[in-house]
Simulated assay, not measured.
Amino acid sequence: MSHEPIDSPTTWVADHVKKYVESGGAHGHLFHGAPTLLITTTGRRSGLPRRTALIYGRDGERYLVVASNGGAADHPLWFHNLLSQPRVRVQVGADVFDAVARPATSDERPRMWEIMAGIWPHYTGYQRKAAREIPVVVIERAAPSRALDELDEQA
């Protein structure tokens, strides 16, 4: 991702991201009491880096985020992007790293959903109104270069 990321077109999200980035994660890490991270995906059509802020949880060393889109009928664009290109850049507080993101498996999802609904109870309401199963996304820090090379070979 060599270009400067394009931030969310949603004004309040873009403002949140700007505050997060400019402060090195000191401001904006907590959003209404919930921890947030920044994720940069690669646009599946444009090939350009796209950045947004998401509430996260932890499952051991892995990070979890929810592709809720506020309970809308469609998945958020960032989710479609990572399905196309699972290599992402993540910022958690001041820590910036490359990672690999994937939807939780059907076996993983129930337990991970409970973790995330415990952090942000609104997810339960979003799921009730959505006409789709809202995905939980697992983000794992990329191993130095081997994991990324393997992903390139699979693409």
Rank of each mutant, 00 (worst) to 15 (best):
P35K: 14
T36N: 10
L37Q: 01
L38M: 01
T40E: 04
T41G: 01
T42F: 03
R44W: 12
S46V: 10
S46D: 03
G47C: 04
G47F: 04
R50K: 09
R50G: 03
R50M: 06
R51P: 04
T52H: 00
A53P: 03
A53Q: 02
A53R: 01
L54N: 08
L54C: 07
L54M: 13
I55T: 10
I55C: 04
G57F: 02
D59T: 01
G60N: 08
E61Y: 08
E61P: 01
Y63V: 02
L64P: 09
V65H: 04
A67K: 09
A67L: 02
S68D: 05
N69F: 14
N69L: 11
N69I: 00
A72H: 12
A72S: 14
D74P: 02
D74V: 07
H75M: 02
P76D: 13
L77K: 14
F79H: 14
L83M: 14
Q85H: 15
P86T: 10
P86F: 10
P86V: 13
R87L: 08
V90A: 06
V92M: 13
G93R: 13
G93I: 04
A94K: 12
A94D: 15
D95I: 02
V96I: 10
V96T: 15
D98I: 01
D98H: 07
V100Y: 07
V100F: 14
A101S: 06
P103C: 04
A104F: 12
A104D: 09
T105H: 07
S106W: 10
S106P: 00
D107Y: 05
D107E: 15
E108P: 09
E108Y: 05
R109V: 02
M112F: 06
W113R: 05
W113Y: 04
E114V: 00
G118Y: 00
G118P: 02
I119M: 05
W120Q: 11
W120A: 13
Y123M: 00
T124L: 14
T124D: 10
Y126A: 12
Q127C: 10
Q127H: 05
R128N: 11
K129G: 08
A130Y: 10
R132V: 08
R132N: 12
I134V: 15
V136S: 08
V138S: 04
E140H: 11
E140I: 01
R141N: 12
A142D: 09
A142S: 08
A143G: 14
A143E: 15
S145Y: 06
S145P: 00
S145H: 15
D149R: 14
E150S: 07
L151F: 06
E153M: 02
